[in-house]
Write a protein that binds this DNA or RNA. Structure first.
Length: 637
DNA sequence: GCGGATCAC
DNA sequence: TATGGTGATCCGC
């Protein structure tokens, strides 16, 4: 059935991709279907759109391969037995849950837009957006029309003719961002920034010192930020969300967290983007609760879907580690630029040289050199390609970067491109091993010496990731394809004041942490917290993530050993052995009930651990599965 | 090590 | 009137 696709027959996923849900909520000035229609109309026929269609088709084929693989995998297999085994894994993970740390995720509301408001109050109440050709942030009024971050301005204008398009003022955002982070550091000097308007705080020590509970503290933080900057911030404590004005609290217990997670769309989990959402959906997993339901299949397809990551997501367990970004974590540094399609060698070289000059400036000012240079270019068809070369020495000079770039570009020639960029990896830190390194060395030595620094972690497992979500607004996010910026939350003016938005999230605390977390926190993007890249670099508001928390155990150290049975949810005060005994009992009881026809979720026992790996960065394993069907379409020009 | 992909912000 | 930029990770070669 490979009939020409009627132009009107856009797949659901594609439409979603182009517009983003935000299902018709009351209060929207425009109906979502109307919004989708306008966007589809404006996109149709463009190269960008055609490229999206191509990708969508590839994904559909990939899904077909996955389903085939699944069918082969489950054939003749006793899924019940597998479920038992997985349940055992779940118990192990549950035992590792750490509810001792109170971690808060904060996110500035419509950051760029609100900073613009500070500079121009007359914009209040009007639909406006910040950004150039592509919108970084839209005011709440603009969002009512379907305007979203990541959306090209010309489409936004169609959705909202009165839209006021503002240019970005990064200096202003940087300044405000610094103010906010400075305030937040009073509550956790080691906070972890995730961009210029978002981050995580471990307020456990602060709470103890000031004898506050999480809600009081978060309220104080939000109040202080607003008082000192006139900007509003949303925060999530554990599974917290803010309803009317801020805080809603989710109890710090396993059952509550699991129940909460259960209703969340997996798309809300960091690391699960549009592609993984579709892949998981193809095997029946739409919500975090579905992970449990389909655990046997997910187990069999661990290679495609990282079972362990998903189980932790189901349980609502994530990393508990909150620490500042460290210089030595940097892996690459690069620069790229988009322009109207160019095809003459001279034009392209001019752009390449510009990019090389910019990169040299950045490398020099930040003190890095690297041994591998990667050229990136995007064809006028929007297809992105890269070509790399490793050298015997470290480079950071424009001339050399340019030379290597040329060398990589020439063989590709004749091409027509709309973007060109250079990235350097295999870095050498020019500022390391000097005073800074010495300091760090002594710092670590001191820590090690003071041994008891706080036992903090339990066993040492591996990994650390997190999952989080937003709740309440079902889907509001998603914008245009490639850009995802994120609207922090959907606004539903009919419900609350636009001022404090909603948002909420969770983060799952987890017990063991590893020394070096693969990347626990979503993305510690830019270097230091706030720092926006000076120029027209990027940034934009966020996606919701979670932060959250942990049990407020009064005693900071090791909380009494209480565990919640993953089967019956009963809270037990016992050690692992006792817990396992209880679970065995529980499982057998469950089996009986099941035999009697009682529907139950959990099943039985398990045996040992598993060797699932996880996606270091975001969690999900690559759901690849490519028998190899290279982009059939034109292979690079 | 390289190139393609996915993801976050 | 034509859809961003920076950085990271993972997979399969």
């Amino acid at each position: 059935m490979d009939h020409p696709v009627a132009s009107s027959q856009l797949t659901e996923s594609l439409v979603k991709r182009l517009a983003g849900p935000s299902t018709g909520k009351a209060g929207l000035a425009k109906d979502q279907t109307e919004i989708n229609r306008i966007i589809a109309e404006a996109s149709k026929g463009s190269k960008f759109y055609e490229n999206e269609k191509r990708k969508d088709k590839d994904l559909t084929e990939r899904i077909a391969r996955i389903l085939k693989l699944r069918d082969e995998a489950i054939e003749g297999v006793d899924l019940t037995k597998i479920e038992h085994h997985v349940d055992k894994l779940i118990v192990d993970l549950e035992n590792g849950r750490d509810l001792s740390q109170v971690i808060v995720h904060f996110d500035m509301d419509a950051f760029f837009a609100n900073v613009e408001l500070l500079h121009n109050p007359t914009l209040k109440g009007k639909p406006f957006s910040v950004g150039g050709g592509v919108i970084s942030t839209a005011s709440y009024e603009a969002r009512k029309y379907g305007v979203r971050s990541g959306m090209p301005s010309f489409i936004a204008k169609k959705l909202c003719p009165e839209l006021i398009l503002l240019r970005s003022h990064y200096e202003w955002y940087n300044e405000e961002s610094n103010k906010v982070f400075t305030i937040l550091r009073r509550y956790d000097p080691r906070l972890s920034a995730a961009g210029c308007d978002e981050g995580y705080l471990n307020i456990t020590p602060y709470l103890q010192k000031h004898n506050l509970n999480p809600d009081e503290c978060v309220e104080e933080i939000r109040r202080t930020v607003h008082a000192e900057t006139n900007l509003t911030v949303s925060a999530g404590i554990a599974p917290n969300m803010n309803k009317p004005n801020g805080q809603y609290h989710l109890a710090f217990d396993s059952k509550t967290i699991i129940d909460f997670m259960g209703g969340l769309s997996i798309r809300k989990v960091p690391g699960i983007g549009r592609v993984n959402e579709r892949l998981l959906e193809s095997v029946g997993v739409k919500t975090c609760g579905d992970i449990y339901t389909h655990r046997a299949v997910l187990y069999l397809m661990d290679k495609q879907f990282g079972l362990r990551f998903l189980l932790r997501t189901y349980l609502g367990i994530a990393s508990n580690e909150v620490k500042p970004y460290e210089r030595n974590e940097r892996k690459s540094i690069g620069a790229e630029r988009t322009f109207s399609p160019l095809s003459t060698t001279k034009d392209m070289l001019d752009k390449l040289e510009e990019v090389a000059a910019e990169l040299e400036g950045d490398m020099e000012s930040s003190g890095w050199m690297g041994r591998t240079v990667t050229l990136k270019f995007k064809l006028d068809t929007f297809q992105v390609l890269t070509r790399a070369k490793s050298l015997n020495h470290w480079v950071n000079k424009k001339e050399e970067l340019f030379a290597v770039g040329k060398e990589l570009l020439f063989p590709e020639l004749p091409i027509s491109i709309r973007l060109i960029g250079l990235r350097v990896t295999k870095l050498k830190d020019l500022k390391a091993s000097t005073s800074e390194g010495i300091k760090r060395f002594f710092g670590l030595a001191q820590q090690a010496t003071s041994g008891s620094k706080r036992k903090a972690y339990d066993i040492d497992e591996d990994e650390a990731d997190n999952a989080s979500v937003d709740q309440e607004h079902d889907n509001d996010d998603d914008v245009m394809p490639g850009f995802h910026e994120q609207d922090e939350a959907d606004i539903d003016p009919s419900q609350h004041d636009v001022d404090d938005d909603e948002e909420l999230q969770i983060i799952q605390p987890l017990a063991h942490t590893r020394k070096r977390p693969p990347n626990s926190v979503p993305g510690i993007s830019m270097s230091h917290p706030p720092a926006l890249r000076s120029r027209s670099k990027s940034a934009g508001p966020s996606r919701s993530h979670g932060a959250a928390i942990a049990a407020p155990s009064t005693t900071i150290s090791t909380p009494p050993e209480t565990h919640t049975c993953p089967i019956c949810n009963e809270v037990l005060t016992t050690n692992n052995t006792g817990l396992n005994a209880h679970i065995d009992y529980c499982l057998s009881r469950d089996a009986i009930k099941q035999a009697q026809g009682t529907s139950t979720k959990a099943n039985k026992v398990l045996s040992s651990g598993d060797t699932t790996k996880e996606y270091a960065m975001n969690g999900l394993k690559r759901l690849k599965l490519r028998p190899d069907a290279p982009v059939k379409s034109k292979r690079k020009g």
